[in-house]
Design a protein around this nucleic acid. Sequence first.
RNA 1: GCGACCGUAGCUCAGUCGGUUAGAGCGCCUGACUGUGGCUCAGGAGGUCGUGGGUUCAAGUCCCAUCGGUCGCCCCA
Length: 426
Amino acid sequence: MRPKYFAPKGTEDILPSVSHEWRFVESQWRAVCERYGYREIRTPIYEETELFRRGVGTETDIVSKEMFTFRDRGERDLALKPEGTAPVVRAYIEHGLYAQSPLQRLYYITPFFRDEDVQKGRYRQAHQMGAEIIGSAEPYADAELLSMLVYFFRTLGIPEDWFELHLNTMGCAECRPAYREAVQQFGRDHFDQLCETCQHRLEHNPLRILDCKVPTCRAITENAPRIDPFLCEPCRTHFERLQAILKALEVAYVRDYRLVRGLDYYTRTTFEVLAKGLGAQNALCGGGRYDGLVEQLGGNPTPALGVGIGLERTLMVLREVGAPLPEAPHPDLFIVAFGDSARLPALQLAESLRHAGFATDLDITGRSPKAQMRLANDSRATYALLLGEDELANQTVSVRNLQTREQETVAQSELTEWLNTRLPRS
RNA sequence: GCGACCGUAGCUCAGUCGGUUAGAGCGCCUGACUGUGGCUCAGGAGGUCGUGGGUUCAAGUCCCAUCGGUCGCCCCA
């Protein structure tokens, strides 16, 4: 078989051999979020392009060059979602969730799309686990979210020294402009020593020179002005309280003055969790406060914050650290038919056992008894149920424990109960 | 957008200075006294060597192009 079609660049098939690992991570995320009082929200895979232009920012790379956009027959401009927050905020406003409760904790698991070059940990269709807290300006909200993140990675089995929470504050509309200007001025003073992209950044997004990865830029910006003296009183207080609460909650973090996130909507708190073993794309998750976004998208001024976690990257780290991932699911039972006369009764038995709640497999390709036994063995079922002329005549079934090789005869009328005492129902 | 490396069975790979019917391991299928798996043994299926062109008596091997993959720059999940 020579394939004629291939999955598009930057996308991948999640095959049965690994899909249970995805489900494991997803179910852990759901469990943790629900334990913290979050409820799931699902939004469309595409939105009006304008939502992302407004929400994420025209100047960002995501919007300026990485969106998959298209037009429907009504000439509407649409875009596959390049991130998860803007759609959630749109839904929050559209459905008046604020009227149900002033505080909304929402979580989601979604694919997202960016038309960019592919490399390790960076795809065109990727998957994100996210959480948003809408309606609290208190640093308790920031702290709770960060604590949940650390808890999540810990419950997945990632050792503490494999990930690091980086924390910063970016101020707000009141105080950031002055800081921005100071950094811009600093950049101009060292213009000749900056890399080409940083020289360009200086004009429209000067704060980004702080997280440039070019060594020479890093050396220079080491001495760049730091935000703390520029923070307005409310921002300074917010950040100080947050740090005190994190300390009380014993959430370890690193103050990272370079942490300037690429999306326009962030205010005050920003953070990332960085992981070892991910290569150049070492951010496991990123997020922060976006107190202006709800208003920006047409709602009433509402404080909010959120996080997006890369599902692929999380899985990479789990594999890297050898964290315990669940085994592939396997059937409880495998039915072997000896002789063609047993094939239909075997299928009938399989159906009744399945409907009774047992994961039951059997051959449906007409293979020999020996081949069926091999399949039973490979299936990793706990028991093989053997059905041949003898059993059919006596209304019994031979039950063979595939590990101990013990075999006994059980009346078909008592089979379900026999199994119930030895197998957990699925 | 730029750069580097890589494309040979389902998977991991070998294939000499270009030279006959392109190999191995794993996996898959069948069988080893008629109703019993893992181990072993025997046999089998599966490849237009990514694709197109060129050089040559001869190309998996050399050259060019193209497509795909991987990693990096940039940016981010």
